[in-house]
């Protein structure tokens, strides 16, 4: 009879690991809890670093390459830390038709960042999303989790400028 894999210790005494651990416990430390657990890590830490990936892999007894394969398959998971503010420009069809690309161009010309980039001062990360389901308000952006509808370059850049 094989012994169950002993659970690894938490990577540090950072309380957030307990939240992550709780997610895994809730799912009985089964391999299929991988995506839920990665969500939990990202919610707690903002991104997935190597320490987290190794901890999750060991806890759920999932091969490292499989964890990395899953983490890089889904667009939501970030393997790099994000800026203090996150601006997601929706590039769904309705937003595209109504000028999402001009919003991206506007942000690029003001901050010199492309989707996936973070400004050098770590203030702002720019991302794109495939439709946030706010098509009635196209073009839409999601700024730090809040949907802002009917944007144009001027209003958006003003809003971004006003952030701390």
């Amino acid at each position: 009879m094989q012994q169950p894999q002993p659970k690894p210790p938490l990577p540090s005494d950072d309380k957030r690991w307990k939240i992550v651990n709780a997610t895994m416990r809730r799912h009985g430390y089964t391999a299929h809890a991988l995506i839920e657990t990665l969500h939990s890590v990202q919610d707690a830490f903002g991104f997935l670093d190597e320490i987290a990936l190794r901890f999750v892999a060991a806890s759920l007894d999932v091969p490292l390459s499989k964890v990395y394969g899953v983490a890089t398959f889904y667009h939501i998971f970030m393997l790099k830390p994000q800026g203090r503010h996150t601006c997601v420009v929706c590039t769904g069809t309705a937003c595209y038709i109504k000028g999402a690309d001009t919003l991206l161009a506007g942000i690029h010309s003001r901050y010199d960042i492309n989707p996936g980039d973070t400004t050098a001062d770590n203030r702002l990360s720019l991302l794109t999303a495939r439709c946030v389901g706010a098509c009635g308000l196209a073009p839409a952006v999601v700024l730090n989790g809040d949907v802002l509808g009917k944007q144009d370059v001027a209003t958006l850049v003003n809003t971004l400028e006003a952030l701390d």
Binding site: A94, C95, R130, C131, G133, C135
Partner: peptide
């Protein structure tokens, strides 16, 4: 998993 861009019925 309403993925079609431009669709928000399920939402």
């Amino acid at each position: 998993d309403e993925g079609d861009p431009g669709a928000f019925m399920d939402r």
